[in-house]
Design a binder for these strands. Structure first.
Length: 743
DNA sequence: ATAGCCTTGATA
DNA sequence: TATCAAGGCTAT
């Protein structure tokens, strides 16, 4: 019934229109690297829109879509405008602080909502502490606090403290004096230090609660309650990977530190921990045969990895043991670790490949002497191995000779680096491949040392900009598989990647979280309320990025604006769900909502959305087993967007054509790159309906936990309400202003 | 082929 | 100059 443009039919809300109008008319490629194509989108300039709209106003129904666009374009002082600016200046705190007043006062309510947001990938990618997340902790560095100190705050400290104290009036007394981070000394009257102090207390409390719960649960799963014991009991080998703490002074922006444990489990039991490789499909990892030299192997590896290196945040390389609480003595910080400690830690762990005694840092990880030699021989001599079984052999120091295929696979999974093998075989010297010294990258400042001393625990192993180093498991496997396919295709040189896919890939930087502010209140633990408010702001930002990304997609600009809007309305949550899966591809058992935050099913259960997380985990598993790679991932995203069957499209045919091109590109790519995975293309497409189900469930949860006070602000809320419009007439009626989206 | 030990050489 | 992560050598 909604086949024509115009507000009465489309029912596009002003907020969404404004958002889209802004993003569609702004110089959209800012922040993106040159796509090389310079494809200027055919959309009209803002001036054009404005002048056109003026005419429209005088001659047409002011309720027409373009009329509304005009109004919105002329009236840019809405919340959206300020949100847009958050990316560029430091008013984040201001926005967040002002939102504090709007937040529901029901803490549990907010927790759920916040978690829901996180699940949808709407939280910040870096530096946020979803308070109480058991997988990680955050630290306040001196720098963070200074940044906070200098932030442009418009809200008074009194206001914030009143708010916070009002939220949790009685709890504070229960908390043992969780001192504010020592680095806050001298600023005790600041808002920042006050927030930090409060945050410490809050987070400590929730950590205590969660630890108890998780321990209880964990003990039902395994008799051990401690990390090491637990992993050992599962037959797992632990390895301290990336045991480097953040060298905050070396970074432009600080990140919370996280404890990273790479682990592997041979039991494959209950889906708790899985090898990030298929065990059922029987796809052996086969090292290139003797016609292919090591240089080829490495070249392939690089070719595949290069594009997403730009966008490293998309694929996390850390694996957290699920269902494990990492205990630390203080709720507010973990401890920087010295080089010596890192080395010591690495040396004291068993070899991650076979469990033997570690002899040193070899090819990117700490391994034993034999696995070092094995990896070297294998790569240098271009060995080809095929597992006689199902590619999931157990590898230990006793049987490691039995199956070199699985041993080598495990080397790669654990993060041994092909590029560490020197092609020229020169001896001596230091290597320079990326991550070669990731265990030595800590240079603690005196203040960090102080922090460490005070927090007094040495179990923290952080990772900074090298977060992507180490276990490049999925990528490595994909690289090898890909290489194997190339071997069969005697076409030398770079693999053919359809231009369309390459163009799409070039837009990925638009979705990166690089420009999301990481310095201010969201650093470190923070009370749920403020965190939630701030996350709402970030949620908005991510949705804007989505719009901007879509707008720059090849051919998307040729679609009429109304159709663009419909398509975006239709798929935004699926896109977020899919990106969550991609983020989580290397964290089996966990959904990585950001580079630093991971949700286990258990935690999700605690917060009431276990079902969604389980489904996400399941679909992520299947992507992993299918060796989904980055080109396929971006193609799937666009396929989600370009769906000609959306109701109300003006030009479904045009959209269908685009869809067909895309489908063909993906088909070509997948079939040529994965010749031994003949079912891959179809399997990938078959995941999309499930993604829709997941996103529907997520939206439902989010909507139900949406505080009343948030009812009027933001694109996210607009979209959510639009979803709900059909069932309950939440929005305003036929001609209300700023109501829900109607379809 | 494996794995323990040796040699090398750029870097801190 | 000490370190340490590369490659080399060789008994098994």
């Amino acid at each position: 019934m909604t086949t024509m443009s115009g507000r009465s039919e489309l029912g596009i809300s002003p907020v969404l229109l404004q958002a889209i109008a802004q993003t569609l008319t702004s110089s959209a490629l800012t922040g993106a690297r040159d796509s090389g194509k310079g494809k200027d989108s055919p959309s009209v300039s803002r001036e054009e829109l404005l002048s056109k709209s003026k005419m429209d106003n005088s001659t047409k129904d002011p309720n027409s879509a373009s009329g509304i666009v005009t109004q919105l374009l002329q009236n840019l002082n809405e919340p959206i405008a300020s949100l847009m600016s958050v990316q560029k200046d430091n008013t984040t705190l201001q926005s967040a602080a002002s939102s504090l007043h709007q937040t529901s006062s029901d803490p549990s309510h907010s927790i759920i909502t916040q978690a829901g947001l996180s699940m949808l990938g709407l939280s910040d990618n870096e530096g946020f502490s979803t308070s109480g997340s058991s997988s990680l902790t955050s630290v306040h560095s001196n720098k963070d606090l200074q940044t906070m100190h200098h932030s442009n705050m418009v809200i008074s400290s009194e206001e914030i403290s009143n708010f916070l104290l009002k939220e949790e009036p009685s709890d504070d007394s229960d908390v043992p004096q969780a001192a504010p981070p020592p680095s806050s000394q001298g600023m005790n009257t600041d808002v920042s230090s006050m927030l930090t102090a409060l945050a410490s207390q809050h987070i400590q409390q929730s950590m205590i609660q969660k630890t108890n719960k998780q321990q209880a649960l964990q003990e039902t799963l395994s008799p051990a309650s401690h990390l090491e014991q637990s992993l050992e009991s599962m037959g797992a080998t632990t390895v301290a990977e990336a045991t480097s703490a953040v060298s905050l002074s070396d970074q432009n922006r600080s990140q919370p530190q996280i404890i990273i444990y790479s682990y592997i489990n041979n039991n494959n039991g209950r889906g708790d921990i899985n090898l990030p490789v298929p065990s059922s499909s029987g796809n052996d990892i086969v090292v290139p045969d003797s016609e292919v030299n090591a240089a080829d192997l490495q070249r392939t590896y690089r070719v595949l990895l290069h594009p997403s290196d730009e966008n490293a945040v998309e694929s996390k390389q850390t694996i957290f043991p699920p269902n494990v609480t990492i205990a630390h003595s203080s709720g507010s910080s973990i401890t920087p670790v010295t080089d010596a400690q890192n080395t010591q830690e690495g040396m004291s762990q068993p070899c991650p490949v076979c469990g033997d005694k570690v002899s040193g840092y070899h090819y990117g990880i700490f391994t034993c002497e034999s696995c070092k030699g094995f990896f070297k021989r294998t790569v240098q001599n271009k060995k080809t191995f095929v597992c006689p079984k199902s590619s999931d052999c157990d590898i230990n120091s006793l049987n490691r000779k039995k199956c070199p295929a699985c041993r080598f696979k495990r080397c790669l999974i654990m993060g041994m680096k092909l590029e560490a093998i020197r092609q020229d075989r020169t001896r001596g010297g230091r290597s320079s491949y990326e991550g070669c010294g990731s265990h030595l990258k800590n240079r603690m400042t005196p203040l960090e040392k102080k922090l460490k001393r005070i927090s007094g625990s040495g179990d923290g192993a952080g990772s900074s900009q090298d977060i992507d180093d180490g276990t490049k498991s999925h990528r490595n496997l994909v690289a090898i598989l890909n290489h194997n396919a190339h071997k069969q295709t005697p076409s030398p040189g770079t693999p053919q990647i359809p231009e369309l896919l390459r163009d799409i890939m070039n837009l990925e930087p638009l979705l990166s979280d690089d420009d999301i502010p990481t310095d201010s209140i969201m650093e470190g633990p923070f009370p749920e309320q403020a965190l939630y408010s701030y996350m709402m702001q970030l949620a908005e930002l991510r949705l804007y990025k989505l719009v901007r990304w879509a707008r720059n997609l090849p051919q998307f600009g040729a679609i009429s604006t109304d159709d663009q809007i419909l398509l975006l309305q239709n798929c935004w949550s699926e896109l977020i769900a899919l990106s969550l899966c991609w983020r989580s591809i290397d964290t089996p058992g966990q959904i990585s909502i950001s580079s630093t935050h991971h949700i286990t099913a258990e935690w999700a259960q605690h917060l009431g959305f276990e079902e969604v997380v389980l489904r996400l985990l399941s679909i992520t598993d299947s992507f992993r087993k299918l060796y989904l790679d980055q080109f396929e991932y971006v193609a799937l995203k666009v396929l989600l967007l370009i769906s000609p069957d959306v109701k109300g499209l003006k030009e479904p045919r045009k959209i269908r054509e685009f869809q067909e091109k895309l489908q063909e590109a993906l088909y070509t790519y997948t079939n040529s790159h994965y010749q031994n995975l003949t079912h891959k293309f179809g399997e990938l497409l078959l995941r999309l309906p499930e993604l829709s189900r997941i996103s529907f469930m997520s939206k439902d949860i989010l909507l139900k936990s949406l505080p009343e006070t948030m009812a009027t602000c933001g694109l996210l809320v607009e979209l959510l309400k639009g979803e709900n419009k059909g069932d309950s007439d939440l929005g305003n009626g036929a001609s209300g202003s700023g109501g829900g989206l109607r379809f």
